[in-house]
């Protein structure tokens, strides 16, 4: 019994790390632009599908998993540079543009990759680590590691790196930042690209563990957003923990309700946070930045 419980906790933490990574993308974009990227879930699926196609073309797994997010990020940078920068100042229109983007991406995913769910076959398939009787897949370990690396990187980025400080400055007081010679659109673009990079990376990490279909993005996005808002949208790095908490709750709930209702749990958490404490539970009481 205890072992099942621990196994459940672990698988919850693994899934939760994915939600967390996607959630970080939401927070970073929200921090810089005040908007929510509704296409974030689609970016995750697109990242995974690109990687699947790359490995299908006989490229090595690791290469595919790294190249796919980068390609996608470059695409987003172009998109931002050409179109989104025009509405970067107006959160509402930026949100509508990302809603539109999610519709288009979903159609493209369906057109190019079909209706059936697909997975990424990784070289670690079936390889597990046995720690005191607990089974932990290498692919699962990679997911957790990915989330932790993202956490540490972000912590460093926002507190130490000049660009991170500048991004924070733009969010806090846009006009003073402009008067200090910072171009807000640049940082908004960087945030957008970075958010999609994390989303695509999360997609690549989850694809070996669970199959994705063209419309998986909606639910993945919602859960990512739930993680982000649970942690507080103003603290991007903490979304990782928000996600892990959410994943664990989700997998424990299966003990009490039929597994089909599992997805409802994250959504209910989302609604509770939105209505009770939209500034998040892990944000330490600080007023939101944007």
């Amino acid at each position: 019994m205890i072992e099942t419980l621990i196994q459940l906790l672990i698988s919850g933490a693994v899934l939760g790390s994915i939600y967390g990574l996607i959630g970080v993308g939401f927070s970073v974009v929200h921090t810089a632009t005040g908007a929510i990227n509704f296409a974030q879930g689609e970016f995750a699926v697109l990242g995974a599908f690109l990687a699947i196609s790359l490995t299908g073309a006989d490229l090595p797994h690791f290469f595919a998993v790294i190249i796919s997010p980068i390609v996608l990020t470059l695409f987003v940078v172009l998109l931002f540079r050409i179109f989104l920068t025009r509405v970067a100042d107006d959160a509402l229109y930026l949100v509508v543009a990302t809603i539109a983007l999610s519709l288009m991406l979903k159609t493209l995913l369906l057109y190019f990759w079909g209706r059936e769910p697909i997975g990424l076959s990784s070289p670690f398939q079936g390889k597990t680590l046995n720690i005191a009787g607990l089974m932990l897949g290498y692919d699962q370990l990679l997911i957790i590691a990915g989330a932790l690396i993202a956490y540490i990187f972000l912590l460093f980025f926002f507190s130490k790196h000049p660009a991170g400080k500048a991004m924070k400055a733009v969010v806090e007081e846009k006009e003073i930042a402009m008067a200090s010679g910072l171009n807000p659109a640049l940082y908004q673009g960087v945030a957008f690209a970075f958010g999609s990079l994390l989303g695509a990376f999360a997609g690549c990490l989850v694809a070996p563990v669970s199959m994705l279909s063209y419309n998986s993005g909606g639910l993945l996005g919602l859960k990512g957003f739930a993680s982000a808002i649970f942690a507080g949208l103003d603290r991007p790095e903490r979304a990782v923990f928000g996600g892990i908490i959410l994943g664990v709750i989700e997998s424990l709930v299966v003990l009490f309700v039929p597994s089909g209702f599992k997805d409802v749990v994250a959504l209910i958490v989302l609604l509770i946070v939105l209505t009770l404490k939209p500034e998040g539970f892990l944000s330490g009481g600080r007023k939101r930045l944007a």
């Binding site: 924070k168 007081e173 006009e175 003073i176 930042a177 600080r286």
Partner: peptide
Amino acid sequence: LLEGKRVFPGL
């Protein structure tokens, strides 16, 4: 230096 806004409060 604009009116009212002086510093980045969180930095």
